[in-house]
Simulated assay, not measured.
Amino acid sequence: MAQASATATPKSASGSDERVRRISGVRKLLNRPELGSLSGVILVFMFFALVAPDSGMFSPDGTLNWLQVSAELGIIAIGATMLMIAGEFDLSIGSMIGFSGMMIGIANVFWGWPVWAAIIFAFALALAIGFINGYIVVKTGLPSFIVTLAFLFILRGLTIGLSVTLTNRTIISGVIDNPEDDWLANLFGGDAFGWLFQWLADIGVIDTFVGGVPVVQGIPMSIIWWLGLAAVASWVLMRTKYGNWIFASGGDAKAAKNVGVPTDWVKISLFMFTAFCATVYAACQVTEFGSASADRGVLKELEAIVAAVIGGTLLTGGYGTVVGACFGALIFGVVQMGLYFTGVESSWFRVFVGAMLLVAVIFNNYIRKRVTEAR
C-alpha cells in the first residue's frame, strides 16, 4: 500500500488537471489574427518572384517602390485598425487626407506661413475634426458608419470649396520649395539614412547613377513613420491598460463601461488618432511631391479598412492586431507594384482587392468561431 501510494504521488504531481483545457501549439497559431495576412504576404512574394524574376521588382529601387506604397497605406491602416478593434469605423479618412494636404498648401503658399506652422495648423484642424466625429458618435449613439460617411462628404466638399474660393484652383504647386530649411518638414519629407546608402554604393553593393549618386538615396520618411507608428501602436494595444480598454470597448462596450472602462473617451481618442494618421499621410505626400491636391485620398478609407480586415481585424470589433494590418498593407503594396512591373492592366488590382476582402472575411469568421470554441 505504501509503495502504491508513493508511486501515485509523483504521478499526480506531474499529471495534468483534466479541468484545464490545453491548447496545442498549432491551435494557438491558428488563433493568431496575423496568420492569414502573413500567409498572404508569403504567397504574393512567391508569386511575383516566379512570374517576374527579372523585372527589377526586387532590386533595391524596386523594393523601395512597393515598400513606400505599403507604408502610405499602412499609416492609415494602423489608425483604422485601432478604431475597428474598439468597434467603430471612420469613413472620412480619405477625405481627411485631401483636406489636411490642402490646408498645408494654402497656409504655406497663399498665406505665407512657414512650413512648420502650416503642418501644425493641419494637425490641429484634423484632431479637432476627429474629436467632433467621436463626440457625435458617443453622445448620440448613431452608428459611426453614418456619422463618418457624412464627414466624408463634408470634408471633401470643404476641401474643394475652400481651395477654389481662396486660390481659384484645386491643385497647389510650389509647396515647400526648400524642405531642408524647415525643421518639421524634414520629419515628413526627404530620405533617412542617406549616408548608409552612399556607403553601400561606394563599396559596390547597390548601383549608382553617373557621378556616383546611389540609385537609392535613403529610406523615405513615410516608411519610417509607418514602422514607428506600428511599433508604438502595437505596444500600446498589447502592453498597456489603454490597449485593454480598446479591446473591451469593442468586445462589449456596455459591460466594459459597467466595470469602469471610459469607453466614450477611448473611442473619441481613437477617432482623433485616425485623423492624426491621415494627416501624417498627407504631410508625407505634400513634402515629397511639393504639391497638394483636393482629390488626394479618394477611396483610401476603404483600402485602409480592407487592409485591417486582411490583417485579421474583425468587423464586429474586439479582435485584431496592428501587425496584421501592416501585413495587409504590405500585400497591397507588393501586388500594386507587382502588376506594374509585370505590365498587367492596373484595373486588375481592384479585382484582387475585392477577392482578398472576401477571402479575409471568410477566414476571419472561421478564426472567430475557433476562438469562441476555445473559450
Rank of each mutant, 00 (worst) to 15 (best):
A253F: 00
L200H: 05
S14C: 05
F276P: 00
V322D: 11
R156T: 11
D182G: 12
P114Y: 01
G312F: 08
L187R: 07
V344E: 14
N258L: 09
L227W: 09
L83H: 04
A71I: 06
G211Q: 12
L200K: 06
V232G: 12
R350Y: 05
G211P: 07
V175C: 02
G105P: 00
A77S: 14
F99H: 08
V322K: 12
I305S: 09
I106L: 15
A8N: 08
M103V: 12
A150G: 15
T274R: 02
M356Q: 05
L237T: 05
N178V: 10
G251A: 04
C284N: 15
G324C: 12
A231Q: 05
G317S: 06
D17V: 02
L73W: 00
S14R: 13
W116G: 13
S163G: 05
D202P: 00
A126P: 05
R370G: 01
N364F: 00
L127R: 00
F341C: 10
E72D: 10
S12C: 00
L155A: 04
L83P: 01
T170E: 15
I268L: 07
I93S: 02
L270M: 01
L127F: 00
V175H: 00
I85L: 05
L227K: 10
G56A: 05
F89M: 10
A248T: 11
W183P: 11
R239L: 14
E180N: 13
L339H: 03
F363P: 03
E301Q: 09
R156E: 11
Q285F: 01
M96L: 13
V359A: 14
K267P: 00
T263M: 07
G218H: 07
W245T: 07
